[in-house]
Amino acid sequence: MAFAGTNILLVLAAMLVWIASFWLAATPPPVSLPQQREGVQLTATGMADLIEHSGLPMFMLDGERIVVANAAAREAVGSHTLGQDARVLFRHPTAVELLSEPNGGSATIEGLTGPGSSWQMSRQPIDGRYSLIELVNRTAEIDVSRAHTDFVANASHELRTPLASIIGYVETLVDEGADLPAEQAKRFHVTVLREAKRLQSLVSDLMSLSRVEAEKHDHPREKLDFVGLAQRSARDGAGLDRQDRLDLAGLEGEILVRADEKQLEQLVRNLVDNALKYGEQGTPVSVAIERGERDMAVLTVRDRGEGIPAEHIPHLTRRFYRTDPGRSRAAGGTGLGLAIVKHIVERHRGRLDIASRVGEGTTVTVSLPIAD
């Protein structure tokens, strides 16, 4: 431009613009946090490295925008969070309020990773610009608390029903005294005895369930013959008046498993008792054990009853769950039998399967590892 006779001021201006373009294109220095630790200034990259392997989901925010999310955070809410506005990510009024709180704090966020999920969110300001977000998953704790509350409520209801019946009949017997006809008094006494036995069974099952749950992490070591134990326990579960309905043709030979003898006996008794209660009167209940795949001993208890509709099967092992509450109570059931069976199977590292067809009957299968 100078050789072409261009004005020298215009040449100097063009040179300044050209030099400035190199300065603007240079890589900017990393974003750094003003906080000093042992004389080393932390950068966003350094913070990412610091929290990457933390077991808790953690985010670093630049204002309201997420600039760092560790592996646990990406797994919990997805990798799309980087660069996103935190208020959009959490979408919870309490969380939005916490994000704008200058002194930080904590809040509970519901539904962050799915329906029913619950997370404790904590925000710690680093300076006026940057802040650190930490998430703690509280879903399991809340589920346990909810299950405990439901269990107490159901147990209270189940205990209250026979107690109310006993108190009512006894009060009538006391008030009427000798004026009550002998036949009616006898009927009242029979009812009180039946309800007292029902209450006794319920308390016994509650204690059994509590013991099994307390020992669920203690794997049994004793070797037992599953076949012989099932024969004895099936006869005990049937009692003297129902022996003729038992079909034990499939219980032969010897198969060893590592088991708690009392709990395994209770498992077989519960399954046989259920099958005899809810199977068609006069029809047999088959009990068999065989060697299954993957070195498993497979116990099968089958009845020929009305069967269970498919929608009930996933809930049968819940405490106090009944497909027909009236029939269950009339048969003397507590609603805890299959819950106890499930926990015993879990303690023995086994598997429980329930199959049923309406009009054909129900088959319960328990698979336990064969002892070496």
Rank of each mutant, 00 (worst) to 15 (best):
E252T: 14
G253E: 07
G253C: 04
I255N: 02
V257D: 00
R258M: 11
R258Y: 00
D260G: 10
D260H: 13
D260C: 10
E261H: 07
E261C: 03
K262C: 00
Q263R: 06
Q263V: 00
L264R: 02
E265H: 08
E265P: 01
E265I: 04
Q266W: 02
V268P: 02
V268N: 03
R269G: 02
R269V: 11
L271N: 02
L271G: 01
V272R: 02
N274V: 01
A275M: 06
A275H: 03
A275N: 04
A275G: 05
Y278L: 05
Y278T: 04
E280F: 00
G282I: 09
G282R: 08
T283D: 08
V285S: 01
V285A: 04
V285H: 00
E290Q: 14
R291M: 12
R291C: 05
G292N: 11
G292R: 05
G292M: 07
E293S: 12
E293W: 04
E293R: 11
R294T: 09
D295G: 01
M296N: 13
A297Y: 06
A297S: 13
L299E: 05
T300Q: 09
R302N: 11
R302A: 14
D303M: 07
G305S: 13
E306K: 13
G307D: 12
I308V: 15
P309F: 06
P309C: 11
A310M: 08
A310N: 10
A310E: 15
H312E: 13
P314K: 12
P314C: 12
H315Y: 15
H315Q: 15
R318G: 14
R318N: 14
F320L: 03
Y321P: 06
Y321G: 07
R322D: 10
R322H: 13
T323S: 14
T323R: 09
T323N: 07
T323D: 11
G326D: 15
G326R: 15
G326Y: 12
R327K: 15
S328G: 11
S328H: 14
S328N: 13
A331Q: 15
G332P: 10
G332D: 13
G332Q: 12
G333H: 06
L336N: 07
L336C: 10
L336W: 07
G337T: 08
L338D: 08
A339Q: 00
A339E: 02
A339D: 02
I340E: 05
I340S: 02
V341T: 11
V341M: 04
K342M: 12
V345S: 09
V345T: 14
V345F: 09
V345D: 05
H348R: 09
H348K: 07
H348F: 04
R349N: 12
G350R: 05
G350K: 09
R351Q: 15
L352M: 08
L352N: 06
L352A: 10
L352G: 08
L352R: 05
I354E: 03
A355P: 00
A355D: 11
S356Y: 03
S356G: 09
R357I: 06
R357Q: 15
R357K: 14
R357G: 03
V358N: 09
G359D: 05
G359A: 07
E360F: 06
T363N: 01
V364M: 07
V364E: 00
V364G: 03
T365D: 03
T365A: 01
V366I: 12
V366M: 08
V366C: 10
V366S: 06
S367P: 01
L368D: 05
P369T: 10
I370S: 01
